[in-house]
Amino acid sequence: MGLKSDEFLIRRAPLAMAARVGASDLPAIPGAIPAEQDLADAAAREGIFSTTVGKVIAWGRYSSIWPATFGLACCAIEMMGASNARFDLARFGAEVFRASPRQSDLMIVAGRVSQKMGPVLRQIYDQMPDPKWVISMGACASCGGIFNNYAIIQGVDKVVPVDVYIPGCPPRPEGLIEAVIMLQKKIAATPVASIRE
């Protein structure tokens, strides 16, 4: 998932280090603080790990993203293909496609957005609770695609803020999976301001 092992302080302590508990390169001084490595090992063996609250919240958020079903046109078919058996989107946590925007946190705009659909798109986005993200899937959602005419909104970022754009017409299901992974990295890197969020 791209997270380096030292960001999480869960470590499996090798047996060889068991003998080194309390030992360090420094001479033993009563009251001295032991080296971080050994403390971590000792804690890990007890099943205690330490991290920041922000990282755990981010991990929870990106590991179980619930997309809202917003398939509009052709890209929706590839989105359905991405959630099916061959290209399994459920491996990355995004299994449950919720019909109601009130219960989802990711809106995958899959397909071309016509002028009549624009206000509906905005309304569905507004109905989603925070934190929410938007993936603009395909060329039509990103920039109007091959339809540069009166009927199609030239890019959904004119209506909603977009986090990840996927090119393609339609993008392969692996492209959607790549976008979800990229979004997961973005969520992991997003600082969480306060615990109360």
């Binding site: 002028q115 009549k116 540069n148 005419n149 009927a151 030239q154």
Partner: peptide, 22 residues
């Protein structure tokens, strides 16, 4: 097919259909 408040009739030949300059 179009929103109820749309003005104009797009498939007439004098209706210029243009999305956005590339």
């Amino acid at each position: 097919l179009l929103p109820d408040d749309w003005e104009g009739h797009p498939l007439r030949k004098d209706y210029v259909s243009f999305g956005e300059p590339v």
